[in-house]
């Protein structure tokens, strides 16, 4: 009997504890879907408290790949999206899901790989040549493969480098009509598509002694902010095609009347304001500037 009372009592305690753990939030709150890179690099932890101090608006962040973040916007699940795939962002606005795309900032991608550099890409300078060398030597390459902005950029780079891509199509139904989900990738066992975030992808590249394309922020974090640091090294960088622009888009209230458009618009405006832009430029990780403002008002 005592046993029963005890277990019921402890279960009640558990339930109470869970209820008490639900946080209460005061003031206006908006939800934002963004990419893992803004979250993992620590930029949002730095920017959002400053935005809240300026406006009293709290931003709840949901970090995903760009594809999923835009999908959240298209389903009206969030008030604003902050992503990096310009082509899809423009389409998002054109299709009426967002009101306007504000160009906020850019960072850049780096090609990283093992120090032994089996494909010999280190002195090639151009990303096109580096990718061609990797493909022709069939050196292991790990791809995000998750439809993220980084994945989209990687595919664009393969295309520019003239490496043939193989298309896999999956027939599905959408809105009752046949549709296709298309997946493109270079052919061969050397190319591993893993469908995971940037941090995981770097860890796996290190493990498999493979090349991968990474945003500089996540790489700097793993190289200088992690113990033990990753053994991967930057083998190609600072080439035009590697630039990576970010945009912020409030979700269209005409499509989803329930979204907090005013607060979302305030957030977008704040990001491209002088104050927001200066904060972005001031953010460093391990002493390195990661994001470069694109909307700094001209003086």
């Amino acid at each position: 009997m005592m046993k029963h009372i005890l277990s019921v009592f402890s279960l009640c305690c558990l339930a109470l504890g869970c209820a008490a753990a639900t946080p209460a939030i005061a003031g206006e709150t908006i939800k934002m879907s963004t990419t893992t890179s803004t979250q993992d690099s620590g930029l949002l932890d730095y920017l959002l408290p400053k935005f809240t101090a300026d406006t009293g608006i709290t931003v709840q962040v949901i970090a995903k790949g760009t594809g999923a973040a835009l999908r959240d916007g298209m389903d009206g699940n969030v008030d604003v999206v902050f992503v990096h795939d310009t082509a899809r962002e423009v389409k998002f606005v054109e299709e009426g899901y967002g009101t306007k795309r504000y160009a906020v900032m850019h960072n850049d991608f780096v090609l990283v790989g093992p120090a032994s550099d089996p494909a010999g890409v280190k002195n090639l300078k151009k990303i096109d040549d580096a990718l061609k060398a990797i493909a022709s030597k069939k050196a292991p390459f790990i791809s995000r493969g998750d439809d993220s902005g980084t994945h989209a950029k990687e595919l664009a780079l393969w295309k520019e480098a003239g490496v043939p891509l193989e298309k896999t199509t999956q027939n599905i139904m959408k809105g009752g009509k046949p549709a296709q989900v298309i997946f493109e990738a270079p052919k061969g066992e050397w190319y591993m598509s893993i469908g995971q975030g940037m941090g995981k992808t770097l860890m796996m590249a290190e493990e498999k002694k493979a090349y991968t394309l990474a945003d500089r922020g996540t790489f700097v974090q793993q190289r200088f902010g992690k113990n033990p640091p990753t053994t991967l090294e930057i083998l190609a960088e600072n080439d035009g095609p590697l630039l990576n622009p970010y945009g912020v888009i409030p979700v269209n209230p005409k499509k989803f009347p329930h979204v907090q458009f005013n607060a979302a618009e305030k957030f977008a405006q704040w990001l491209v304001s002088e104050a927001g832009q200066e904060h972005i430029a001031a953010y460093t990780l391990q002493g390195k500037q990661l994001f470069f403002p694109d909307a700094m008002p001209k003086k």
């Binding site: 594809g67 999923a68 439809d147 599905i172 989900v181």
Partner: peptide, 9 residues
């Protein structure tokens, strides 16, 4: 993965 990509169907 398909959830992460937003391909719910």
């Amino acid at each position: 993965l398909e959830y992460d990509k937003g391909e719910f169907a």
